[in-house]
Amino acid sequence: MAKSTPTLQHDNELMRRVHRELIDEYDEELEMEREDWEHVEAGQPARPVEDDTSRASRNRYFKELFRLQGELVKMHDWIVESGHRMVILFEGRDAAGKGGAIKRITQRLNPRVARVTALPAPSSREKTQWYFQRYIAHLPAAGEMVLFDRSWYNRAGVERVMGFCSDAEYEEFFRTVPEFEKMLVRSGIQVIKYWFSIPDEEQEFRFRCRINDPLKQWKLSPMDLESRKRWELYTKAKEVMFERTHIPEAPWWVVQGADKKKGRLNCIAHLLSQVKYSEVERPTIKLPPRVHHPDYQREPIPAEMIVPEIY
């Protein structure tokens, strides 16, 4: 039976509202991204970039980001459907872009399936456990992917450079970690390891941006500032880590992160290439009509419970 004119008008208006809502949502996300496209002097208001070249580059970035995120949703569906298990490690210097890449990867995925794990410093009890013990609890079950924002490789990096582990503990880590990762792979967990690389000058620039941005100063810890002084020691630690843990079962992949936008896109594209996923057929979703009961009556909400509408 053909729909009546009022019903068609209602459906059309509903779809227009849905489209506007989607556009508003994307606009809000674009505003969140804007900080990466502007250079703001300390104490000065943000200024939109009007240069045609910058605007075209921005448009290309978002077009490609949305396309790749669409593929991530397909991969996400396949992981759930197939029961695949995947662990993705994100390592790199402070301000190298790990968090930004993780955010864009998980932005449109179900957080119960694509979980982010960022463990704090170990507690006094955890320090007495087997080193890998606290990470094991966060490994994926069937149909899950876990993204580690820093991982067990803390021992090869910050713990080594800052003297938080002994030489014996450091050597034991390197004896254990290849076998630990091989064991994960043998059990059916795919392990992907990313190192985000940035030049010395770019890290200094990003640190200065954080120092001058009140909304980002929380990202700078005393440990970050101390690591800045020990740049060369971190470089040596990274080189040793690559040499001793770059194994066929779980190789390292280096993301060039001097340009944050390109680094994110390259990381996502590479991640997609590492999973042999296929699109999962979804049934057509039909919204059922709401059931109306003649005796239903909605109770009024007391005025003192309502949040003041100041906007």
Rank of each mutant, 00 (worst) to 15 (best):
R93L: 01
R115E: 10
V113S: 07
K74Y: 05
E31N: 07
Q217E: 05
E91D: 10
I268M: 05
S221R: 15
S166M: 09
E64V: 01
W253T: 13
V240R: 05
R160W: 10
D149C: 02
Y194L: 05
A142H: 09
V146C: 13
W231S: 03
Y61C: 07
D149E: 01
L184D: 00
C209P: 00
K127W: 05
S82Y: 05
H138Y: 14
Q44A: 13
E33A: 15
R16D: 12
K74A: 07
L119C: 13
M223S: 06
R210E: 01
R34W: 09
Y26D: 10
I198K: 08
E33P: 05
T53V: 15
S221C: 15
T117G: 11
R58E: 14
Q274C: 11
G99Y: 00
K229Q: 12
A2S: 11
R282M: 13
F205S: 09
E304V: 08
F62T: 07
Y170N: 06
D77M: 05
W195P: 02
A258E: 13
G157Y: 06
P302F: 01
I211G: 06
R290P: 13
P308W: 06
K238E: 05
A168Q: 13
A121S: 13
E41K: 15
V116S: 05
Q190P: 02
R134E: 02
Q129W: 12
C165F: 10
P222N: 04
G70C: 08
W231E: 04
I306G: 00
D94Q: 04
A121P: 12
L272Q: 01
L215W: 09
G143C: 08
S221E: 07
S54A: 15
R150P: 02
R282H: 14
R228N: 00
Y234W: 05
D36S: 13
E41A: 15
R58T: 09
P288C: 01
E169A: 07
A101H: 02
I23F: 10
P248W: 10
V73Q: 07
D167N: 12
I198G: 04
Y135G: 09
D24T: 02
P248Y: 08
P283H: 12
I88K: 00
I189L: 09
L8A: 02
V291K: 14
D36H: 13
R230N: 02
W231A: 01
A269Q: 14
V80P: 04
K286T: 15
M1E: 12
M32Q: 12
P289I: 00
E31H: 05
K127H: 13
S82K: 14
S221T: 15
L72G: 05
I247V: 11
V161D: 08
P222A: 09
I301W: 03
M145L: 11
Y170F: 15
A95V: 01
E172R: 12
L14D: 11
V80F: 04
F90A: 06
L265E: 02
P294F: 15
